[in-house]
Nucleic acid binder design. Structure first.
Lengths: 188, 188
DNA sequence: TCCAAAGCATACCGATCTGTCTACTTTTGA
DNA sequence: TCAAAAGTAGACAGATCGGTATGCTTTGGA
């Protein structure tokens, strides 16, 4: 019945992800997703038992594709001589320059699903944990002095800059974040 | 008709604010707000032309009460000898320790109302701007070297720590943020 | 070739959504 | 005292919500 790989399933998830960013999770109706993806309602419910499952699938997809993109982007920047942590900040900044950008999908998800036990809220938390682990590895690779603390601070600065970009559409946050990371990690 | 000051109006706004934090703005129905505040529907619509207006009023109230609380809290901490910027970080941390806390109301609002021209999104942006101005003044009062940049970095760290507290319920973010601020501003 | 899986349209369900209307009651201040 | 202001309950409207049921068409692989 509900096959795992698929063609239309992808369209559903992609469309949902796009609409969720603009209108929010609760603000986006199933019918809207169906209309814009050109998929029938029965097909949706053949792949996902409920809307919440579609949301979870969308978050999972976002997590995977984002992480894949990020690793490539950061690696490419390190290749050109950028310090790994600075490369990370610049990569996030690049990500946030997408036209449809409206903040971090996971922060938005945690905001709409406030109950810490709700699967969507947990998914957001797990993503943030994974991001922190990723940056910690970067800090260790770069032989930073206190990799765990500098990684955490880098993460805070990036989430803050992402929020600033979302709220007032300014890149000043990322510029200040990059400078802060350089000072905190004794770079250049 | 729609008087400005009021008794029941306050209950409506307070209840809405509490529910919005848990269920989100779109996820919270008018009827739920009415039931929990014990106010009739007609009274609501006598005070607010629409739900969006109630949301805007709630954000306005949050902005005002939060700012009043913050100024008092920061002043009290400065009184005890804390550096103004560190006092700010600790004040935010205290704010985020409220049991009903679910992230920054304005970040959540911007997430649900993605259109930058939407009044709710704008209100979120204006709040963030005002917060930045507040911290810039603190930095100037403390005779920091580059008050504008250090203020911005402090703001990024605090928003990042707020997000971390929301997503994984950890205070580690605030501790790391306070340390970062001390280093960036050459404190102690 | 042919069958099963996948996808389709469409109507429908009950619940809930924001918002309106009418008509009655309480409060309050000049 | 008495009239205006504020509040009440409750029915109602039309739209939309998430989700289900039925029955038809397309498609792909053995």
């Amino acid at each position: 019945m509900a096959a795992r790989p698929t063609p239309r399933r992808d369209r559903l998830v992609d469309t949902a992800l796009r609409l969720f960013a603009i209108e929010g999770f609760h603000g986006t109706g199933i019918d809207r997703i169906l209309a814009e993806s050109g998929v029938s309602k029965m097909t949706l419910y053949k792949h996902f038992p409920s809307k919440d499952d579609l949301i979870l699938a969308a978050l999972r997809r976002r997590d995977e594709s984002y992480r894949a993109w990020l690793e490539t982007e950061v690696a490419a920047r390190i290749e050109t001589g950028e310090h790994p942590l600075v490369a990370y900040v610049h990569a996030i900044q690049t990500w946030c320059d997408r036209p449809q950008f409206n903040g971090c999908t996971f922060i938005n998800a945690a905001g709409e699903f406030g109950d810490p036990k709700h699967p969507v809220h947990r998914a957001a938390g797990e993503h943030k944990q994974a991001m922190l682990a990723f940056v910690e590895q970067l800090a260790r690779d770069a032989s930073c002095n206190h990799p765990q603390e500098i990684a955490l601070q880098t993460r805070l600065l990036c989430d803050g800059a992402t929020v600033m970009k979302q709220a007032i559409r300014s890149d000043r946050g990322f510029e200040a974040a990059a400078e802060a990371v350089k000072r905190l990690a004794n770079i250049s």
